[in-house]
Design a protein around this nucleic acid. Structure first.
Length: 207
DNA sequence: GAGTAGATCGGCT
DNA sequence: GCCGATCTACTCG
């Protein structure tokens, strides 16, 4: 397997500043080698979740359960869970041990392995990952890939370096699909690359 | 087009 | 037993 995708530094994911990290992950690559097929996506949309004071987080308020315990691990592992009984969601756990912060990867742009991803999605559409559920399906990610180190090329899934997206190319808005979280639902914790057509459809009218 | 229901199941109240 | 960090298909117009 080619080595052109260099893993990101796991140390860079140890900060407690989940908002800065959500912006940092924009533009980075997700490399998947599931089923021996190399598939690469460029992250174009993220959302931050903070376990301590964010009602939209599964770990709020710092509640550890069998499901959420991976969010309390040291940054650099995957947190994957099932939503609506159908869709897998891919999160990057960040922060030091004991801080339940995570970043949801909401959308990504196809870079390599497009044929494989279209086949997994059973779709002719090239835009195979403009939404968190579709992204996991395109890459073949399931809950089996929960709690994996995603900063090493030996993993089936890892994050790879790419040039940083500058602040003026980042659009900020409220998060999606969390109306139940009351006032937290308004927090501008959603980050997208400006003018990128591979971001997810904004359901939020105020955005 | 826009709006809505149905799918489907694990995790927690 | 209820409901979700979603997506698709189907309706109506």
């Amino acid at each position: 397997m080619s080595n052109i995708y260099l893993p990101i530094d796991i140390q860079s994911l140890q900060s407690e500043d989940v908002l800065s990290l959500a912006k940092l992950l924009l533009g980075k690559f997700i490399v998947s080698k599931i089923d021996d097929a190399l598939c690469v996506l460029k992250i174009v949309e993220t959302e931050a979740y903070r376990g301590a004071d964010d009602k939209a987080s599964h770990a709020y308020p710092n509640k550890m359960t069998p499901r959420t315990k991976t969010m309390f691990l040291s940054g650099g592992v995957s947190y994957i869970y099932l939503c609506y009984g159908i869709h897998n969601m891919f999160n990057v756990v960040v922060g030091p041990t004991g801080i339940a912060n995570a970043i949801l990867i909401r959308a990504a742009e196809p870079v390599d392995g497009v044929l494989e991803m279209k086949e997994r999605r059973q779709s002719k559409e090239v835009n195979v990952a403009n939404g968190p559920g579709k992204l996991c399906q395109a890459l073949g990610i399931t809950r089996d890939h929960n709690n994996m180190n995603i900063c090493t090329p030996s993993s089936l899934i890892y994050l790879a370096e790419n040039k940083k997206i500058s602040n003026e190319d980042i659009e900020i808005g409220p998060r999606v699909g969390i109306a139940y979280a009351e006032e937290c639902a308004m927090w501008p914790w959603r980050f997208r690359i400006k003018d990128n057509k591979y971001t997810s459809k904004p359901k939020n009218p105020s955005y």
